[in-house]
Simulated assay, not measured.
Amino acid sequence: MGLFENLVGAFLKLTDPTPDYTGPRCLLERNSVGGCDKCQQACPHQAIRLENFTVEIDEVRCTSCGLCTSACPGLALEFPLGSIQEKLHRGKGQLRCSRAPGAGDEVHCLGQLTPGLLAEAGARFGPLTLAHGDCAGCKIGGPSVPERVQQIAEEGRRYFPGLEVRLQQEPLAGAEVGRREFFGALFGGAKRSAAELMPNLPLLPEEPYEDKRAERPAELRLRRVAAIQAQSVRWPRIAVGEGCTLCPVCSNVCPTKAVERERSPSGEEYILKLDVSACTGCGACVESCPPQVITLTEADRVEVLGGPIELYRGVPPWYDL
């Protein structure tokens, strides 16, 4: 592919309104018991189809509202969060949607916000102010956006309990921005745009399908940053009770590789471990566990910021097979 084709492809990528889809983190593709249709239910424009155990997004119907991304339990649907985080920082915790009047930075729709974005900004700036337009008549996100943002904020309080979010329809005054901050933001935006437009050189083979689960989503990184600043957290985690057969189902269905199964050095036991900071609380392992011995609970700050914890160990009943 030549330079021109790469530039055209990069431009289309920048203007493509659909969220990025990472199939290995989708509960449908992971064959979780009960499946999942939360993204389809959240979409106000019927732009999402669930076919052949995968998610297909209609680029014509999609308005880039982002409501599907915050509804996805496995974080398989994402918008790039760096630019939104930068806008929250530049506005010192103030942000408005593209249909809201007033000054300050804007995002296409407040539905693109995530618990991690709000928690990290709240930990840094204190109370956040989010302005929205007439959602009832908006063709981007629709009337459900304010309620959904409140739900996102409530989820964000799991990672930073002090999070305060004010939703308003009044014009946003906007935070004052100095010359240095303005030119710094302008230069930073230019660098990012140039990086996006540079052609990708095919020097390395494409990453294996399963390895993509090991990539820590930006949302999880933001949640962890917020947890570092918090006094306490209510991070979701799982617990494994007696009766576990140490089969690989929980590790297979986990969308973020939070659960891993490994063999002990002696070779006689198997060990289930959990990276708490990678757990989304999706419940896929709970629903899929054959003996139904996995439950959802909450982790404290020490467990989130520490290394993997041991969930269960033992000699599986099928060891001699």
Rank of each mutant, 00 (worst) to 15 (best):
T63R: 07
P291L: 10
R157M: 06
C285V: 03
C135E: 04
E78V: 14
K273V: 15
H89P: 05
N252Q: 09
L321K: 10
V33F: 12
D20E: 15
D320P: 01
R192V: 10
I57N: 14
K92R: 15
P208W: 02
E29N: 04
K92W: 08
G116M: 14
R221Q: 05
C36Y: 14
G314D: 02
I238E: 00
E260A: 15
I57E: 13
E120N: 05
L197R: 11
C36G: 09
R237D: 00
G102A: 05
L95I: 06
W318Y: 11
A185D: 03
E154C: 11
E181F: 04
I228F: 03
C43T: 02
A173M: 12
I57K: 04
E196N: 14
R192N: 05
L67R: 04
T280F: 10
V177I: 15
L27V: 03
A185T: 01
E51M: 04
G35H: 11
G174I: 06
R213N: 08
A284K: 06
E310P: 02
G281N: 12
A175N: 09
G141K: 07
V276P: 06
G2F: 02
P290V: 07
V315T: 13
C68F: 07
R263P: 02
K191L: 12
L28S: 01
Q229M: 08
P24E: 05
I84H: 02
I84K: 03
A100Y: 12
F53H: 10
Q112V: 05
D37S: 11
A131S: 13
L201R: 09
P248A: 08
E196R: 15
G141D: 08
G306L: 11
L12F: 03
Y159V: 07
R179C: 11
I140K: 13
K191P: 05
Q151T: 05
E287H: 05
A153R: 06
E147A: 13
I228M: 10
I57S: 05
Q231A: 07
A175Q: 13
V177N: 09
A195V: 11
K273M: 11
I228R: 10
R224H: 09
V55I: 11
L12Q: 06
E207L: 14
E298I: 11
A47T: 00
Q112N: 07
S98C: 04
D275P: 05
T63F: 01
R180M: 13
C282I: 09
E269P: 06
